[in-house]
Design a binder for these strands. Structure first.
Lengths: 205, 205
DNA sequence: GTCTATAACGTGATAGAC
DNA sequence: GTCTATCACGTTATAGAC
C-alpha cells in the first residue's frame, strides 16, 4: 500500500473530529483542545495542518454546505423526473441526510445568523432554487391548472418546513411526545411517504 | 415619581441588552463586555447585579421560555374555542411573536442542543402539548370521522414546521427568493390565513 | 510529522476608590 | 450604585526538541 487510507491520515482525523464538534457546539462553543482530544492527536498538530481554528472552521463549513447542497441541486435540476417524483426524491433525500447528520441544519442556520451574506453566497442557494427545473415545473403545473396557484416560496417553506423542522426541533418533539431517538427516526421514515401526499393535497384539493 | 420606570433602571437595561445579544449570538458567542457596552454601562455592574454571566444567561433563558410558552399554553388549553379556531390562533400567535422576535426559536433550539433534559423541563412542553385540550380535540375529530386519522406528532410537526421553520431559515429563504425583510414579513402575514387552510386540506381531503 | 512547554491574548470576575 | 484598574484563568497559537 503506497498510501494510508484517507480516513486514517492525521489530517482526516482532525477534520472528522472538527466536523463532529463544530456541528454540535458551533464555532464559539468549540475549543481547539476538544477537537484535538476527539481526534486523538496533539493540539499543536491542529495548527500545523490547518493554521488556525478559524481556517479549520471555514473549511468544515464550506464542505458541509457543499456536500449538503450538491445532492439537492442534482434533484432540483434533473430534467428526467417529473414534478411529483422530484417532491418524493427531495423529501427522501433530506430525511436520509438529516437522519445520518441531524445537527447539520441547526449548525448551518445558527452560524448563518452571524455571517448571512457570505454563507448565502457559498450555498449558491439562489441558483439551486429560484432558477431550478423543479420550480419551473411547479409553475408549469399551475399554468396548466393541474395544481392550484401557490407562490413558489410558500411551497418551498411548506415542503422544507415539514421535512427539516422536525430535525431542528427534535429534542422538543421528543419531549412533547415522550419518545426516544428510535421512535423519532421511525416517525421520520413514515414522513418520507406522508409528506409528498400532504403536499399533493395542499396543491390540489 | 417614587420610582424610575422599570425599563430605565440599570438592572433592566442590562437584562434587555443581555436578551438581545444572547439571543443573537448564543451563550458561548456572547462576551459580557458586549452586553455591558450594549447596555451603556460598565462591565463591573453586570456582575454586581447578576453575579455571573451564567446566572444572567439562565435568567434570560428562563424568561424567554416562560414568555414564549405561556401564551401558547393558554391557547392550547382554552376550553372555549373549537379545534379549527385553535389552529388559527396558534398560527397567528406564533407568527406575531416570531415577527417581533425572529431569533427566539433558533436561540432556544441551539442552546437546547447542549442542555436538552434541563431545558425541556423548564418549558413544561409535555404538559403544554401532549395533555392539552387541543390535542384532545384533534383526537375527538378523528374519532368522529370529521378528519382523517393522523398521529398527533405528525400533525404538530406539520403545523409548527410550516409556521416556525421560515423564521429559523429566514436568511436562506430571503436568499432563495431574492427578497428583503419587508417582503419576508409580508409573506409571513399571508401565511397566517394560508396555513390553517392548508392544514385543513391535509386533514380532510 | 509529532510532541512538550510556553508565549500571547481574550475574557469573566473582583477589589477598592468614589 | 457606579466606576477604573487589575487579577486569574482558559484558550489559541507558536517555538523548539525529537
Amino acid at each position: 500500500m503506497a498510501k494510508e487510507a484517507k480516513d486514517n491520515s492525521t489530517e482526516e482525523k482532525i477534520k472528522n473530529a472538527a466536523r463532529r464538534i463544530f456541528q454540535q457546539k458551533g464555532y464559539a462553543g468549540t475549543r481547539t483542545r476538544d477537537i484535538a482530544e476527539e481526534a486523538g492527536i496533539n493540539l499543536a498538530l491542529l495548527n500545523y495542518y490547518f493554521r488556525s481554528k478559524e481556517r479549520l472552521f471555514d473549511l468544515i463549513m464550506t464542505e458541509s454546505l457543499e456536500e449538503f447542497f450538491r445532492s439537492l441541486r442534482s434533484v432540483f435540476d434533473d430534467p428526467s423526473t417529473d414534478f411529483e417524483e422530484k417532491i418524493r426524491r427531495i423529501v427522501e433525500n433530506y430525511i436520509d441526510k438529516l437522519t445520518a447528520n441531524p445537527n447539520l441544519p441547526i449548525f448551518i442556520l445558527s452560524e448563518l445568523r452571524n455571517h448571512p451574506e457570505e454563507l448565502i453566497k457559498k450555498t449558491g442557494v439562489k441558483k439551486v432554487f429560484l432558477n431550478s427545473v423543479f420550480i419551473q415545473q411547479l409553475e408549469d403545473e399551475i399554468a396548466a391548472k393541474r395544481v392550484k396557484p401557490i407562490k413558489s416560496l410558500h411551497f418551498i417553506m411548506n415542503m422544507l418546513g415539514m421535512t427539516v423542522f422536525p430535525f431542528i426541533a427534535s429534542p422538543m418533539i421528543k419531549g412533547m411526545g415522550n419518545i426516544d431517538q428510535t421512535e423519532f427516526e421511525n416517525l421520520m421514515q413514515e414522513r418520507k411517504t406522508l409528506i409528498p401526499v400532504w403536499i399533493k393535497m395542499i396543491l390540489t384539493s
